[in-house]
Nucleic acid binder design. Structure first.
Length: 768
DNA sequence: GAACAGATGGTTTTT
DNA sequence: CCATCTGTTC
């Protein structure tokens, strides 16, 4: 083992050492539980990584005894690369260090940092079920989002025609809050949320079904039936979804069935703890119990954004008390408040924003310090661009971006300039963060659409990157590609016409897709050879004399064959994401269907071929066409350097941009604009779901009203958005919702009492 | 300036 | 479906 000083000396050979706050995270004894409250840009991954290295190098814990989990796949990958990268560098430096004895050198050389376990909770659970099971049993297959959505739709809703049931309809409609846009997909999502919360909140399900108000009794029973059908469908296929997976692992941990794994455990570290739910807390507590309560949690209550997915920020805020109740020891609280990301101006605005609403302070961690800066870092003022309407806003914003990244820079009134980094700066240094990246809302063009148009109209044009901007089934490329797949699999829709169980939305989209494909095929722009290729598939004609069409072909071959005629699907970043959706959904269909994603053609049994087509329509193309399947988060981990990225604030979590543009209200031109996004009057579906299920959970009913929770969520959202900025933060919106405007809006400095704090004092930004 | 009629706008985020 | 906006009329 080496000393802490040795470790820090080694670290300093390639990066600055830890600051005093980070030092207290690594100094604490391995068995000491830590509650690390880390604001944005304060180096929490750094502190976590260093603690891991310290536990291994200084305290001598075997690397395989260290377990570090985070909430997202992206964060897990980052933590892993940091642990390995710094680990190898530190080991390298120690080997060369003259102050280290031969014995110590041998120890260091013997370490295999690779054995440190990093990943998401779900990947941990999956591995535990796979590696530590009773002899002779099969590990369950994990049903990903694609599979579980498809099954919930098919078995939960369409089976027994529950989607036509008036009672269920009314019940889910109330939970949804509005009949607007209320279709099969929405219902399936609500059912899935109830299913997930049941496990996440550890709900006493029997009590929930039996103990509701009399008027709801039948509705609750139908919900229970639907979820049972979904569960049975998973079980029949030997599958588990994320909720069942975690629940099963918790059960086995409690039953001591995974001792082979837990007996080696020395420390457990959890990142992004503010987005944990009760089930996950129980998992962490069980794992920590195996190593004497050596549990370190890191997070930021102000950045908890995933209530709608079951996150309960109270678990983070109340961690010291909850830990004590379980382990009868006190965790040590450490605040990381030195912000290394942003300029003083941005930091000041972020600090002011977190404390602007009195009601919000009650849900924050007690005694949390403001973000500080060890040494001053003055920059340019925070900027605000507000315009009379969205068209002028889009034009002016496009011009601004163009001047900065393709022109001579943008000149402020005082002469200072905003310029791209002269070395390697490009539009990729800038991101537009919105509450939703959708380009359209009820047939109207939103800012992401208008900014795309405006940027493309400039010289030279700037393209945007926004794979989630459009409704997937209505993207022309998706329609053409999907239409060709349809025509190849089921020419003329003959089998489709005889197939039940295709959602009405999917049928409509299918018709559009087929038309788009036919239009493409008959247009002069049709790729050469495409028609012949597709006709070959449609006629099941191998096109060569002496060859026969195989009895069974994998549809993945068709996908790759067709891709050949759509270069955008592999060359264009957005196209790649769309292709991935088709490939993933086909994999899902393979896993749940009986034809394994294959197209069968058997002259002796014509019914078999039709059945394979039916399965592909229902399980492969149907969910994409119905809009149930969305572009997945981890499909877009890197952003093109030469495009303006448009992303939701949720997607931006954990990222930072030199120039961050936040849409604080391009949609809010008058008081008719949606209140739930700016000044809620009551809670939304996630808050209603909490109130519905928490009475039957150990968590108990939430202490705050739905409305207050809705406000809290909005403050957190814009806190995250504003704190992404490194150098320049630019807030954009329409005049009506600018501070002093008449449209109340949390994002422009209003508190929940209806007072605009930013209008009372000097505005915290410079108007452009 | 009040009262009325007809038009308008419109639920988000996702492992 | 409903709150709000806009225009018209007195």
């Amino acid at each position: 083992m080496v000393s802490l000083d040795d470790l820090i000396r080694a670290l300093k050979t390639f990066r600055p050492g830890p600051d005093a706050q980070q030092l207290s995270v690594l100094q604490a004894a391995p068995g000491q539980s830590l509650f690390v409250v880390a604001g944005p840009g304060t180096g929490k991954t750094t502190a976590l990584t260093l603690r891991i290295l310290k536990v291994v190098l200084v305290d001598g814990a075997p690397p395989r005894g260290v377990l570090a989990t985070t909430f997202t796949v992206k964060a897990a990958a980052e933590l892993r690369s940091r642990v390995l990268g710094w680990g190898f560098a530190v080991i390298d430096a120690l080997k060369k260090d003259r102050g280290v004895s031969t014995e110590q050198r041998d120890f260091v050389a013997s370490l295999d940092i690779n054995q440190v376990w990093t990943g998401t909770v779900d990947s941990l659970c999956e591995q535990l079920l796979r590696d530590y099971r009773a002899a002779g049993t099969q590990p369950p297959v994990l049903a990903d989002e694609f599979v579980s959505k498809t099954l919930m739709l098919r078995e939960g809703l369409f089976d027994n025609k529950r989607h036509e049931d008036g009672v269920l309809d009314g019940y889910l409609g109330t939970l949804n809050g509005s009949r607007w846009n209320f279709h099969a997909g929405t219902k399936a999502e609500l059912l899935q949320s109830i299913w997930e919360r049941r496990f996440q909140d550890q709900v006493d399900w029997g009590a929930f079904v039996a103990n509701g108000p009399q008027t709801e009794a039948r509705a609750r029973q139908i919900v229970a039936d639907a979820l049972y059908a979904y569960e049975a469908a998973l079980q029949a296929r030997g599958m588990v979804d994320f909720s069942l997976l975690e629940d099963e692992v918790l059960r086995r941990l409690k039953g001591g069935q995974i001792e082979e794994f837990t007996r080696d455990l020395r420390v457990v570290l959890v990142d992004e703890y503010q987005d944990s739910n009760l089930l996950q807390e129980q998992l962490y507590f069980e794992l920590a119990a195996a190593c004497g309560g050596a549990l370190t949690v890191v997070g930021d209550d102000d950045q908890s954004l995933y209530r709608f997915r079951g996150a309960t920020v109270d678990l983070f805020r109340d961690f010291p008390a909850r830990y004590r109740a379980r382990f009868h020891k006190k965790p040590q609280t450490v605040f990381l408040s030195n912000n290394y990301r942003s300029t003083d101006e941005v930091r000041t605005l972020v600090n002011g924003y977190a404390t602007l609403d009195r009601g919000y302070q009650a849900v924050r961690v007690a005694g949390k310090p403001v973000l500080a800066r060890p040494s001053p870092r003055p920059g340019l003022p925070v900027l605000g661009m507000f315009r009379p309407n969205i068209d002028i806003l889009a034009t002016d914003l496009a011009a601004f971006v163009h001047q900065v990244f393709r022109g001579k820079g943008y000149r402020l009134a005082d002469g200072r300039r905003i310029e791209r980094d002269p070395k390697d700066g490009d539009v990729g240094d800038c991101a537009l963060l919105c509450s939703s990246p959708a380009e359209w809302r009820s047939g109207k063009e939103r800012l992401p659409f208008k900014i795309r148009q405006a940027l493309e109209a400039l010289n030279p044009p700037i393209r945007t990157f926004n794979p989630r901007g459009e409704d997937l089934p209505s993207i022309p490329l998706v329609q053409q590609f999907g239409g060709l797949l349809l025509e190849c699999i089921d020419p003329g829709g003959v089998v489709e016409g005889q197939t039940s169980g295709i959602a009405p939305d999917a049928s409509t989209a299918f018709a559009e897709w087929r038309q788009a494909a036919l239009d493409l095929a008959s247009s002069p722009a049709a790729p050469i050879g495409l028609v012949d290729y597709a006709t070959g598939w449609a006629n099941r004609d191998p096109g060569r004399k002496g060859y026969e069409w195989p009895r069974s072909v994998a549809v993945i071959d068709l996908i790759y064959g067709l891709t050949h005629y759509f270069p955008d699907l592999h060359d264009d970043p957005e196209g790649q994401v769309y292709l991935e959706v088709f490939a993933r959904q086909l994999t899902a269909a393979e896993q749940i269907g009986s034809f394994r994603g294959r197209l069968v053609q058997d002259p002796r049994e014509p019914g078999l071929g039709d059945a394979s087509v039916r399965e592909l329509l229902r399980d492969f193309l149907g969910p994409i066409a119905a809009g149930v399947v969305q572009v997945n988060e981890d499909l877009l981990d890197s952003f093109p350097r030469d495009r303006l990225s448009i992303l939701s604030i949720h997607q931006s979590k954990g990222l930072e941009f030199p120039l961050t543009i936040v849409d604080v209200g391009s949609d809010f031109k008058d008081l008719r604009s949606p209140k739930f996004k700016r000044m809620p009057e009551d809670g939304g579906p996630p808050h209603r779901l909490e109130d519905l299920l928490r009475p039957h959970s150990p968590l108990g009913v939430p202490a705050r009203s739905q409305r207050d929770r809705a406000f809290d969520d909005l403050y957190r959202q814009y806190f995250v958005a504003f704190s992404r900025a490194q150098d320049i933060l630019l807030l954009v919106g329409v005049d009506a919702t600018a501070p002093g405007g008449r449209v109340p809006n949390i994002a422009t400095g209003w508190d929940r009492m209806g007072v605009c704090q930013w209008a009372k004092t000097r505005q915290p930004f410079l108007r452009l």
